[in-house]
Structure formats: structure tokens, C-alpha cells
């Protein structure tokens, strides 16, 4: 029987982004754990909506002509926070508070990245 991290990995390999929800209804937990941090309470797996908001962002510079790449912290709609990156943005367009949605890049080691969410025009 695998631990929670391996279970999370297995789901991601199947294209599913799981997150853990405490049964007492408090905010979601990431990274995966065997029990709820701080309380020891029970956790259950739920599918993450993938929706989130950029909490902070940095652009890491590389030797030209390599462009800089970003690293962000994303507050997931379920309440957990994770590191990530936002694709399809520039230092001018990426901003704290930006709405994003998770996408899984499949591969030998699948990775979760984020895309900007088009805001509905009023």
C-alpha cells in the first residue's frame, strides 16, 4: 500500500489533479499527507477544480538569449497553496491576483502548470 504522495503521483500519471479535503470541511491540504496538518484529522481525496489565483510571482533571469522564466505561488480555489508556473505570459502581463487554471503536462514525470483564465468581458 502506497503513501499519500505515491497515490497523488499515480493519479497525476492518469491525468487527474487530486487534492486532499479534511472531512471537517476546513480548507484543502497540499502537499499530500497521511492526516490533516495541525489537527491530525481525517483527509479524503477530491478532484481539484484547477482554478486558482496567483499569490506571488518571480521571474528568474537566464543568460541571454534565453528568456526569463517565472515561478509562482498559486492559491487554489479549494484553499491550498502550491508552487507552479504560468505559461503564455510575460513579465508585463503576469501579475499577482491573476486568475489561472491548472493544466497537466503529460510525460514520464507529469507536471502541473497554469494558464491565465480569460476574464469574461462585461
Amino acid at each position: 500500500m502506497s503513501g499519500p504522495a505515491a497515490e497523488w503521483d499515480a493519479a497525476l500519471a492518469e491525468g487527474r489533479f487530486l487534492i486532499q479535503q479534511p472531512v471537517d470541511g476546513s480548507r484543502a491540504v497540499f502537499p499530500p499527507r497521511a492526516f490533516a496538518p495541525g489537527t491530525g484529522g481525517e483527509l479524503e481525496w477530491v478532484e481539484a477544480s484547477g482554478l486558482g489565483t496567483v499569490y506571488s510571482a518571480t521571474w528568474i533571469q537566464r543568460k541571454p538569449p534565453e528568456p526569463p522564466y517565472n515561478v509562482v505561488l498559486v492559491d487554489l480555489a479549494e484553499g491550498a497553496r502550491m508552487m507552479g508556473r504560468v505559461d503564455g505570459v510575460t513579465p508585463e502581463t503576469l501579475h499577482i491576483g491573476m486568475a489561472v487554471k491548472a493544466r497537466i503536462i503529460a510525460g514520464e514525470t507529469p507536471v502541473i502548470v497554469f494558464d491565465p483564465v480569460e476574464q469574461a468581458h462585461g
Binding site: 504522495a5 497540499f30 502537499p31 528568474i60 522564466y69 515561478v71 502550491m82 508552487m83 508556473r85 507536471v111
Partner: peptide, 9 residues
């Protein structure tokens, strides 16, 4: 850690 490492901070 393994959760942050994929993004190369």
C-alpha cells in the same frame, strides 16, 4: 522539496 522542485526556483 519535491513539490517545489519541478518549477526550478
Amino acid at each position: 522539496d519535491r513539490w517545489d522542485a519541478p518549477y526550478n526556483p
